[in-house]
C-alpha cells in the first residue's frame, strides 16, 4: 500500500478560553491516499472547515499529530508552513478571494511571486494555467469584470499554477448556480484525472456525488469515513 498523503492522528482543536471554549474537532483520525478525490460533508458547525484549515496548514491542531507526505507539520515553523502552502497545496474558497486590484493573470501569478519564480516564466505559467481552465481570452480582466463561475475558475488556476499535489476546496460551488457548479466540477474531475489529490467540503449531494469517497463529520468527529457517493446521493434524495 502507498504511504498516505494526509494522515491525521487523534487531532483535536479547541477554540477560545475558559467558559467560551469550543471543541471544534475531537480526536479525529483520518487517512487520505495520493490521488484520492474526497468530499467532506456534515451539518453546519460540525468542524469541516476546521479540519480543512488544519489539512491546509493554515492552522495547527491543539493536540494530536498531522503528517503531510510523512512529515509532521506540528514541528514546522511558520515560514516553513508558508512554504508548504505555496508548493504543495492549492486552495479554492467559497468567496473566490481574488485581489480586486489585480487582473486575472496577476492573480494567478501571485503564488509564483512568493515562490520566487522569475517574471517571464511566471507570466507564461499563469497564462497556461488560465488557458487550462478555459479563460485564455480573459487574462487582463479584473475580477469585477468576470462572472462568478469565471472568478472561481481563475481561483482554480491560481490554486494549480504551482502544480501542488493537493487541492483543497471549502464549498467551492457555494456561491455559484447549479450550471456553473457543474462546470467547476468538470474541471475538478479533469484535475483528478491528472492525478491531483482533491479534498472538498460541500453541502450539496449532487456535488459530493462527483467525488470517490465521502467523509461525514458530526460534532467535531468523523462519523463515517468511507461512504460511497452514490449511496449518500440516494439517501439524501430519498429524504
Amino acid at each position: 500500500m502507498k504511504a498516505p498523503l494526509i494522515r491525521l492522528v487523534n487531532v483535536s482543536k479547541v477554540y477560545g478560553l475558559g467558559e467560551n471554549q469550543v471543541q471544534a474537532l475531537q480526536n479525529v483520525s483520518l487517512e487520505i491516499q495520493p490521488g484520492e478525490y474526497c468530499a467532506i460533508m456534515g451539518a453546519s458547525g460540525s468542524g469541516k472547515s476546521t479540519a480543512m484549515n488544519i489539512i491546509g496548514c493554515l492552522d495547527r491542531p491543539t493536540t494530536g499529530d498531522y503528517y503531510l507526505q510523512g512529515e509532521n507539520v506540528a514541528r514546522c515553523s511558520s515560514a516553513q508552513l508558508a512554504h508548504i502552502r505555496n508548493q504543495q497545496i492549492g486552495f479554492v474558497f467559497q468567496q473566490f478571494h481574488l485581489l480586486p486590484q489585480l487582473t486575472a493573470l496577476e492573480n494567478v501569478m501571485l503564488p509564483l511571486v512568493y515562490a520566487g519564480v522569475p517574471p517571464r516564466e511566471r507570466q507564461q505559467r499563469a497564462r497556461l494555467a488560465l488557458e487550462q481552465v478555459g479563460l485564455g481570452h480573459r487574462l487582463h480582466n479584473k475580477p469585477n469584470q468576470l462572472s462568478g463561475g469565471q472568478q472561481q475558475r481563475v481561483a482554480i488556476a491560481r490554486a494549480m499554477v504551482n502544480q501542488p499535489a493537493l487541492l483543497l476546496a471549502d464549498e467551492p460551488t457555494g456561491a455559484l448556480d447549479s450550471r456553473t457548479s457543474q462546470e467547476v466540477m468538470d474541471l475538478f474531475a479533469e484535475l483528478h484525472q491528472q492525478g491531483v489529490t482533491i479534498v472538498m467540503v460541500t453541502h450539496e449531494a449532487d456535488i459530493a456525488r462527483r467525488a470517490e469517497r465521502i467523509i461525514w463529520f458530526r460534532d467535531g468527529q468523523v462519523l463515517h469515513d468511507h461512504l460511497r457517493p452514490d449511496d449518500v446521493y440516494q439517501a439524501i434524495r430519498a429524504m
Binding site: 493554515l58 511558520s78 515560514a79 508558508a82 512554504h83 502552502r85 508548493q87 478571494h97 485581489l99
Partner: peptide
C-alpha cells in the same frame, strides 16, 4: 485583512 489572509494562504511568509 482578506487580502493579507489570501496572500498568506498562497505562500506569503510573515516577513513578506
Amino acid at each position: 485583512t482578506q487580502e493579507i489572509g489570501l496572500r498568506k494562504a498562497v505562500g506569503a511568509t510573515e516577513g513578506d
